[in-house]
Amino acid sequence: MQIIEGAVIACAGLGSRLGMGMPKCMIEVDGKTLLSRLIETLQPLIPRIHVVVGYREELIIEHCSQHHRDVVIVRNPEFRTTNTAHSLRLGSVGMLRKVLYMDGDLIIEPASLENFVDTAVKIPLLIGVTRAKSSQAVFVSTREGDDALPESVGAFQRDLATPWEWANVFAGSPDLLVEGTRYVYECIDPCLPAAARALNLHEVDTPEDLEQAKIWMRSRHA
């Protein structure tokens, strides 16, 4: 057992593909921001939550000062020239061993995240995967084959489509986030094969993703 010291949520990016002029985590679905949904899902599971901000940071700082006063806001003033891996590394301040990392543009079904955390405390590295559905998916090949629920990731791949994609969520050591790496999944790549669990989630990158996410939310409430 190795407890998860904290969660780091990356919210610094421009979200340019969505083009709403605000950080993606500030988009509201059913009257609540993506960030509030993530924080409320994480709070019962994780002792500390860090939110990394950059693009239009004042919106997120104000939102947290109103609704989430117990999160630590970590600034990445170089968000225009750095990537998510850099933001996550900055966000790991005061965390040494095991951290839950995720993008701020996700809507995650709470029960699936709870299962993910339960498994993550038992092993050094756990990778989140989800049913392939996003427009620019990083696919994963799983050892269990395409039809079974994945329990491990063998490789990340852009070109060869599989039914599962990288979920932009993992639990592991902050040391994995090395300087100069472009994408977060590339930081994990040297550790493959590694354990994986399926997460029921939607990523919001484009207006189409947002529509899909809203439909998904409605279907869950129906």
Binding site: R48, S65, D70, L90
Partner: peptide, 15 residues
């Protein structure tokens, strides 16, 4: 001028 922004004494102490 800051690296971090924190709004709560308990959260600050934990960090």
């Amino acid at each position: 001028a800051a690296n971090l922004v924190i709004h709560d004494a308990g959260t600050l102490c934990k960090l």
